[in-house]
Write a protein that binds this DNA or RNA. Structure first.
Lengths: 145, 145
DNA sequence: TATTGTTATACTCTATAACTATA
DNA sequence: TATAGTTATAGAGTATAACAATA
């Protein structure tokens, strides 16, 4: 019987493949993983302060400044003044930004459907449960609270 | 029934958790993901030219120079002249480098055992098969040859 | 002429610290 | 006094292009 470590190897390989695939599709448009992550969060949360984005992304405020600069220069997001707090700026998606997110969602849906396309309903259900169990265990390891 | 995209979300979350966990353990020693990857490959392949490492890592030769510089400065690898080709240098692991790889292997084995610790033999076997199927499908997407 | 590794240059992600404007 | 965002500075990963030494 193989050692459990091969499960880790499989998961790690999948992780690398997923990230490589995502990078391949995004980079032509000037979108990198970090910028896409911010775009994704801003889309989910609606117009957000950079402070809020920094917190959501677990990243320094300075880092958010740079990412928003890049996304703004490429037309994916827009900065606007906060209506009540003149220190803050609100980051929201432009039409182009919203469209990019929509296309990425479609791409992910297409990938997801492809990778499990020959699983029957029962197998897919078990696979989901297994992944959830693994995720929970990984969270335990990261956050031993 | 949920959309298949949630499988992708689960896999992506696992990918991020694995990488976060690996980063957390390595960085104190001055090892980053990129340096660790090179260390891993050099360990598996034995003494290698930087050219060979660049090819194995799918990265530019210039990048390898920087990674080897950093690993050499921290005592994980050693450069030595190639016995027959005076243009090339051979990169090999020091005692400290070998020990670091050994410790990482133990860490990965521990994590792997933990994440599937409540799977019985049958479930684990199915899970492996599912991961292999997903990996194969992802390779198809990446490499439509 | 081709290849190995390096210097030169540039872009990106990331962080901390100091600073400005506002709360 | 504290907070939001920026400038300043720094380290790391990555790339291409030009160059030296060697094949």
């Amino acid at each position: 019987m193989p050692d459990d470590i091969d499960v880790f190897d499989r998961l790690l390989e999948i992780a690398l493949l997923i990230q490589a695939d995502m990078a391949r599709e995004l980079e032509p448009a000037g979108l990198t993983a970090a910028r896409t992550h911010l775009l994704w969060v801003a889309h989910s949360s609606g117009p957000s302060t950079q402070q809020a984005l920094a917190h959501a992304l677990q990243v320094s405020p300075r880092n958010v400044t740079g990412l928003v600069d890049a996304l703004e220069a490429r037309g994916f997001v827009r900065r606007s003044p906060h209506p009540t707090d003149r220190r803050a700026t609100l980051v929201s998606l432009t039409e182009q930004g919203t469209q990019a997110v929509t296309e990425m969602e479609e791409g992910r849906r297409r990938i997801a459907a492809h990778v499990v396309s020959d699983f029957d309903v029962d197998r897919l259900q078990h696979f989901r449960a297994d992944l959830d169990a693994v995720t929970a265990r990984l969270h335990e390891l990261m956050d031993p609270s």
